[in-house]
Amino acid sequence: MINSAMKLAKRRKEKLVILWYLNPELNAAFEDLFQPILEPDITLINIHSLKDPRKLYYQLSAGQRFGDDDIRNNKTDDRLNDDFYRALKKRVYIFTCERFDPTKDYSLFVPTDTLQKRVDTFTRDFAPRCVGVHIRRTDNAVSMGKSTTEQFIAEMEKELTAHPETRFFLATDDQSEEELLRSRFPGKIISNQSRTIDRNSVAGMHDALLDLYCLAASDKIIGSYWSSFTDTAADMHGIEKIIAGE
């Protein structure tokens, strides 16, 4: 979403203000995860409440506001339709979780030095070939219904048949899934076994970002249906992605 906003601001030759909302779903400041943004036309503000006066100022002083429904109803292939774009006023306030102007530019998101060292530790074991596996469970019923464990196993077996040297980096929020795959593919699974699965903590966000960047460093991704985590990991470096169950 931030990438979309950055591209939109550049297209309109305007400055971008990012309100980074810390809440139980992502309770870590931007600087806890990434290097500070140095671009002069981009300002990032960490907020802890939707009633933060700075947030209310930008929202109430905007010439136009739009959100999820407006974007879904006015985009084609993840891009705002031209008529909607041309009708935008000055000082637009956007509150959304939707992509609306895709770009391959992820330059804003450079992990902290500490986090990058952790990523490097795992990716050193990726040679000669590593396939990322992202299994989304717990809070995504749509994904669980479509991308079953059996379908992930079938895709992994296909990879090993074609490339016996393959290892798998596993990112999952379900410990039982990891235990099953480790028993099914002994010596083939790489993962952060000490992960913290708690989105309401900096440690949990560090481990989630570690998984994301390790997936993005793999040669291919076997991902979960209806998961932006899968999509973003593949998109970051333009690697091949297949969705289990499709």
Rank of each mutant, 00 (worst) to 15 (best):
M1L: 10
S4V: 03
K7F: 06
L8E: 12
A9Q: 14
A9E: 14
R11M: 09
R11I: 01
R12T: 07
E14L: 09
E14I: 00
L19Q: 13
L19P: 05
L22M: 15
P24K: 11
E25G: 13
E25T: 14
N27C: 10
A29I: 01
E31L: 05
D32S: 14
L33A: 09
Q35F: 04
P36Q: 10
E39K: 08
P40V: 00
D41P: 02
I47A: 09
S49D: 12
L50D: 12
L50W: 08
K51V: 03
K51C: 01
K51I: 03
D52R: 07
P53V: 11
R54E: 15
K55Q: 10
K55W: 13
L56I: 11
Q59I: 00
S61D: 13
A62K: 09
G63R: 13
G63A: 13
R65F: 10
F66N: 07
G67K: 07
G67D: 06
D68Y: 02
D69E: 14
D70Q: 07
I71A: 07
N73D: 15
N73Y: 04
N74Q: 06
D77Q: 09
D78Q: 12
D78P: 00
N81K: 15
A87R: 14
K89R: 15
K89F: 08
Y93L: 11
C97A: 10
R99G: 13
R99I: 04
F100M: 03
P102I: 02
T103A: 11
K104V: 02
D105K: 03
S107P: 07
L108R: 07
D113G: 08
Q116F: 06
R118N: 11
T123Q: 02
G132F: 01
H134R: 06
H134T: 07
I135T: 03
R137Y: 05
T138W: 05
D139Q: 06
N140L: 04
N140S: 08
V142N: 10
S143V: 09
S143M: 05
G145N: 12
G145K: 05
K146V: 14
T148M: 09
T148L: 11
K158H: 04
L160Y: 00
P164T: 01
E165Q: 12
L170K: 01
D173H: 02
D174E: 06
D174C: 00
S176Y: 00
E177A: 04
E179F: 00
L180R: 03
S183I: 00
F185P: 04
S191L: 09
N192C: 14
Q193Y: 07
R195N: 14
T196R: 09
I197Q: 12
D198G: 03
R199A: 15
R199K: 13
N200F: 01
S201T: 14
A203G: 04
L209M: 15
L210E: 13
L212D: 13
Y213S: 09
K220V: 11
I221P: 09
G223N: 11
S224E: 05
Y225I: 08
S227Y: 08
S227D: 12
S228V: 06
D231V: 05
A234F: 00
A234C: 01
A234V: 00
H237V: 03
G238Q: 02
G238C: 02
I239N: 02
I242D: 03
G245Y: 03
E246K: 11
